[in-house]
């Protein structure tokens, strides 16, 4: 039986700290977006940055042009490159912590999913859940394959941006549509945003899972990050709580070192593990096959 947590434990829980961090970054972007819309509209001569100036993916899109010409592609600035460098530094240290602790779009999807779980008992959602349960195997296969789509998106954007020198992704980017919500037009980005927001009620972080090009970069670089979550086999009771709490549906209970590119280091698995079998470890950045042999050799 689980012991009820005290106030101090709750305030120091990773879930609460993560909520604070996510809310802080999301509020900052919301404030910048509000200021950009309201102040810039009222005083045209005032310089009010757009929230797009803080997007690290803008840095990815403009990097080639910046390196080769010293200029930025339209709607990107030096700040985009700096935030990208900050993200890369964070990723090299802490894997996908940016996704789990900072990204406002990931936060929004996560909060919608929580709302979705609260209304999950309503009749239409129950029948949807029953439908999904009947097709669990097929949906799992689809989920596995669909996760590779984000790498296709990334390659397409990199090719297009380098070839044409413009932000080819902006017209399809749901995050760009979200932060320009007041001037939104019914285009591809708005439709994709609507789809992502609706899906977020039923699926954990659908954009991050299947289509986020920034997540694709982070996932790949995160493979060589210094800190990773690892499971100690001798302590694990195979209760499966970690798997159930993982928003990215990673098989934590059978993993050694969690090197899955989709892990966003939310630390949910650490928080729920009743046997303290999961923990954060400083690691040598080693490739996947070496991690596998270490896992087998050390009984992880």
């Amino acid at each position: 039986m689980h012991r009820k947590k005290g106030i101090r434990e709750n305030l120091l829980s990773t879930a609460w700290l993560r909520f604070l961090a996510q809310a802080g970054f999301a509020l900052f972007i919301a404030f910048v977006a509000y200021r950009h819309e309201v102040v810039a509209g009222q005083i045209p001569t005032q310089i009010v940055p757009s929230p797009e100036a803080y997007c690290p993916f803008g840095g990815v899109e403009t990097l080639y042009t910046y390196i080769t010409t010293g200029k930025f592609i339209k709607r990107t600035h030096l700040s985009n490159v700096v935030v990208l460098i900050a993200l890369l530094a964070t990723t090299l240290f802490a894997k996908s912590a940016f996704c789990g602790w900072i990204c406002p779009f990931g936060t929004l999807q996560e909060w919608l999913r929580k709302a979705g779980k609260k209304i999950g008992h309503l009749a239409p959602f129950k029948s949807l859940q029953a439908w999904a349960r009947r097709r669990a195997g097929w949906l799992r296969d689809l989920d596995d394959w669909a996760r590779y789509f984000k790498y296709v998106v990334l390659v397409w954007i990199l090719w297009g941006t380098i070839a044409y020198g413009i932000m080819i992704f902006r017209d399809y980017d749901p995050y760009a549509a979200l932060i320009r919500i007041t001037e939104i037009e019914l285009g591809a980005a708005a439709v994709i945003l609507a789809i992502v927001l609706v899906l977020s009620f039923f699926i954990d972080r659908p954009w991050c899972r299947y289509a986020c090009p920034l997540g694709a970069i982070i996932g790949l670089i995160g493979k060589i990050s210094l800190v990773k979550i690892a499971r100690r086999k001798e302590l694990c009771t195979q209760c499966g709580l970690c798997n159930r709490k993982c928003p990215m549906s990673i098989d934590v209970k059978n993993a050694g070192i969690i090197s899955n590119a989709d892990c966003n280091n939310c630390l949910n698995c650490l928080e729920v593990c009743p046997a303290n079998a999961l923990d954060l470890y400083l690691t040598f950045p080693v490739p996947g096959p070496v991690v596998k042999s270490i896992n087998e050799g050390r009984g992880l």
Partner: peptide, 21 residues
């Protein structure tokens, strides 16, 4: 695996690295 890292230290370092850069 080299050493265990306290989760609060980890959280603090994530924020410090990101905002510090």
């Amino acid at each position: 695996l080299l050493a265990r890292i306290n989760k609060y230290v980890y959280i603090l370092l994530v924020i410090i690295i990101f905002l510090g850069v």
